[in-house]
């Protein structure tokens, strides 16, 4: 069931650096139950758009609102420095912190139902005391998902959730994401280079290409039929499973 109120709304959003727009203005409306894929070749502006949507970069113009909805970010696994020690429980707990909540005292053994549920939902409840450093790539991805879910978000934004994974592990991650989306009525927006997997999993897409000067958002079928997309990835899509990088 898809509700009408958007989780994320962009109207004429302009993204770029130092006052210089990188892409044409973007209109986007992400709703519950939808899965949006952010696709484009390397250096096309995906990261700039992603960071602007997350509030990590200021927008140069237009509107970016997420009315009443909580956003959680699932970074690439490689973004966590392995030399900084953290256990699974520490990471998932940190996902439940918002704003200034870190300054409130917390009893060391206090359990947060949202944290426990998040760990159960992704199947890492038995890894509580494991160090991040010792986890497999698939386990790390599940822990980052649990961290995001601990904040009880409405919209999950994921950066390359299946990078450096084999086909089997990648399929497991997409299956888990689909299950979580349906069970928790989430909206998903993810960056991925795997067009083959996205064509089976995503309902919508935003194709960005700064070299062509285009941003094409909409239902997946419409986006892949767009001439700009076809010019860049037509052969790959025809082969179902190409790498967009």
């Amino acid at each position: 069931m898809v509700s009408d109120s958007p989780l994320l709304l962009c109207q004429g959003l302009q993204v770029g650096y130092r006052g210089r727009p990188l892409l044409p203005p973007i209109d986007l409306r992400v709703q519950r139950g939808e899965t949006w894929a952010l696709i484009g070749p390397n250096g096309a502006g995906k990261t700039t758009l992603l960071r602007t949507l997350l509030g990590l970069l200021p927008a140069l113009g237009g509107q970016l609102v997420h009315p009443g909805s909580a956003i959680a970010y699932v970074p690439q696994r490689s973004e966590l420095d392995p030399s900084v020690p953290a256990r699974v429980l520490d990471l998932v707990r940190s996902g439940a912190e918002r704003g200034w909540s870190f300054a409130k005292p917390r009893w060391p053994f206090a359990s947060n139902p949202a944290v426990l549920q998040a760990m159960r939902d992704v199947g890492v409840e038995n890894l509580c005391r494991e160090p991040w450093l010792h986890l497999s790539e698939g386990q790390k991805q599940r822990v980052l998902l649990a961290q995001a879910l601990a904040g009880q978000p409405d919209l999950l934004i994921l950066d390359e959730p299946t990078s450096a994974m084999d086909v089997h592990a990648e399929r497991q991650v997409f299956d888990l994401l689909g299950e979580l989306r349906d069970r928790r009525r989430l909206g998903l927006l993810l960056v991925s280079h795997n067009l083959g997997a996205l064509s089976r999993f995503a309902t919508h897409a935003v194709f960005v290409d700064k070299d062509q000067g285009v941003v094409v958002p909409g239902p997946l079928a419409e986006v892949v039929a767009h001439p700009a997309f076809d010019a860049r990835f037509g052969v790959h899509v025809a082969q179902r499973g190409g790498d967009a990088s």
Binding site: V84, G95, E97, G99
Partner: peptide, 22 residues
């Protein structure tokens, strides 16, 4: 007082910013 905040910024600064930590 700020221990959990300092720790989160050290582990994942972008994630902490998205969650609204100062």
């Amino acid at each position: 007082v700020g221990l959990r905040g300092f720790a989160q910024v050290a582990v994942d600064e972008d994630g902490a910013r998205v969650r609204g930590l100062p």
